[in-house]
Each structure stands twice: as C-alpha cells, then as structure tokens.
Computed example of a mutant assay.
Amino acid sequence: MQRQLQQLIPALATSDGAGVRIKRSLGQSQQARLDPFLMLDEFNSESKDDYIGGFPSHPHRGFETVTYMLEGHMLHEDHMGNRGDLKSGDVQWMTAGRGIIHSEMPQQEEGRMHGFQMWLNLPAAEKMKPAAYRDIPASDIPTLELANGGRVKVIAGSVTADGTTVEGPIQGLSTEPRYWDVQLPAGATFEQALPKGLNAFLYVFEGDLTIGEPPRQLKNGAAGVLSDGESLTITAGEQGVRTLVLAGKPIKEPIAQYGPFVMNTPEEIEEAINDYRAGRLAG
C-alpha cells in the first residue's frame, strides 16, 4: 500500500537561540508533532545578521537533537568536554538523555549558513540515560546514485535501489529512524519500501514534488505528513526536487515539554527545571 500525503505543515518564520532566523515546520505547536519527531527547523541565510548570534550555552533533557549542515560552519561545545566542528555535509547526532548543556556557535562571519535541526523523542526508559554525542563527517555518510540521475544521502536507516543497498551510519536505535536526503531531476521518481507502522513525513527544501494517487503536490518550505503504508513513491516537479524523508517508530507515550526539556509528566519537567537550577541536570 502506497503512502499518501495526509497533512500539510507549512514552515513558519521565527527565531531561536540568540536571534537566529529559522523556519519551523514540525514543532510549531504541540499539535504539529509526529511521534517520535518533536520538531524540525530549517536555517538558511546569506546574511550574517540572521545567524551570527548562534545558540549560546543551553540545556536539554529527554530527547535527541540531530543537526544536518548543508552549507556553513558551526562549533559544538558541551559540558562533557566535547568539541566538534560541523561543516558542510556533516551531521551531529546528540543524545541529551538525563541532561546535556551545550552551545552551537557560527564559525563564519559571511556566506550562507544552511541546514536543519530535528528533535527526536526518547522513550521513558531512555530519557535518563547518560548523554552522548557523535560527530558524523560528510565522508562517513554514504550517497546512493540512482539510475534516473537522482541521489540519496543516507544518514539513518538504509535505502535499496537498482539492486544496491546502502546503510547509513545511524543504526540500531529504539525509534528505528530513517533520515534520507533525496535529490531528483525534473520528472524523476523515487520508490522505496517504508515499513507499515512507522510514522513518516517529507520536508521539501528545493523545488517541489508530487505523491500519492491522485497526485498531491508538496512545495518548497512545507512538511508533508504521510499516511501509513508499506512504500513511498515521489515524483519531482519541473524544477527537480530536494527533500528530506524522515520516518520512525512511534513511542506512544505521553509528552510533557517545557522548552528544552521533554519528559512524560509535569512532575518530571519540574524535576528537570530544579536539577538545572541546582547544577544537577547533567549528573
């Protein structure tokens, strides 16, 4: 059964951190989530005034953050002593777990800064596990070249096309995430198995595409939540398309969120706030 376009979530312009201009699709309200995904932000500007303030030191607890840099240079530093440069094509996969305090600051004063940050929830059993951090350089993220001239960059999960299977560097998580960057020339089609029971959405950031029967269009700057099904088929529009494909196993647990803390109950949120104020957040 093919997945259909079920809901459109146009990205809204807003700001975060120290005035960084972003577009937020998932996560713009509590109703605009898709278990296990909490939020997706796109940042994209050539003006330093839109990004130079960066994201000074701040806490997280109870989920994972995934930053994918298309163009630009950011520096991550955290309370565990990790320090990592995030450059064009790189990914940072950070598990906040019981707590992490970190900063993400631009290392450029001119040129384009373009990328994404996604928040991925953790089940209750994992929310208080030790924090972890992984830098994934672009050279470690495989790209599958398609026979139709398209390509798929596989960050998490795997993709099979033309008899070849490529596995991304992120495997074995309880939410079973798929994170693909799919680029197609005009009129080209991408077909892929996407197991039933996984929640999935697309985010188009270049061109447009059509999906489903009858075909529905998904334009640049919008997320498209997909119906359940066993496979995904998308077709690029006249200008071609570049889209993120994200899918994951729903956790099906209550969500309590206060800013950078995502737990299951209001009491756990209160505990996180108190821990942060008392210097206990990160253990």
Rank of each mutant, 00 (worst) to 15 (best):
159 V>Q: 02
230 E>L: 05
263 M>K: 08
220 N>I: 08
244 L>A: 07
227 S>P: 07
190 F>W: 15
244 L>V: 06
200 A>T: 07
202 L>F: 04
198 L>Y: 05
183 Q>F: 09
219 K>F: 05
219 K>A: 13
170 I>G: 07
151 R>D: 13
243 T>A: 15
151 R>W: 05
185 P>Q: 13
218 L>A: 06
194 L>T: 01
195 P>T: 10
206 E>F: 10
175 T>D: 05
170 I>D: 06
205 F>P: 03
153 K>G: 06
199 N>W: 05
191 E>A: 13
193 A>F: 07
245 V>M: 01
159 V>E: 02
163 G>F: 13
239 Q>G: 06
174 S>G: 08
156 A>R: 00
228 D>T: 14
209 L>N: 00
179 Y>R: 02
260 P>A: 10
240 G>D: 12
203 Y>D: 00
270 E>Q: 15
252 K>V: 03
261 F>A: 03
155 I>M: 15
266 P>M: 09
154 V>R: 01
251 I>A: 05
221 G>N: 10
236 A>H: 02
186 A>G: 11
234 I>D: 00
230 E>P: 04
183 Q>C: 14
205 F>E: 04
170 I>Q: 07
184 L>A: 08
237 G>M: 12
236 A>G: 12
222 A>E: 14
160 T>R: 12
258 Y>P: 02
158 S>P: 01
176 E>F: 04
157 G>V: 01
206 E>P: 00
221 G>M: 12
246 L>D: 01
175 T>Y: 03
238 E>N: 13
253 E>S: 10
193 A>E: 15
260 P>T: 13
194 L>Q: 01
215 P>T: 08
153 K>R: 15
205 F>V: 09
224 G>D: 00
255 I>P: 02
269 I>M: 05
200 A>C: 12
240 G>C: 13
229 G>M: 10
219 K>L: 11
227 S>T: 15
242 R>P: 03
246 L>P: 03
204 V>L: 11
172 G>V: 10
204 V>P: 00
205 F>C: 07
195 P>E: 14
163 G>Q: 11
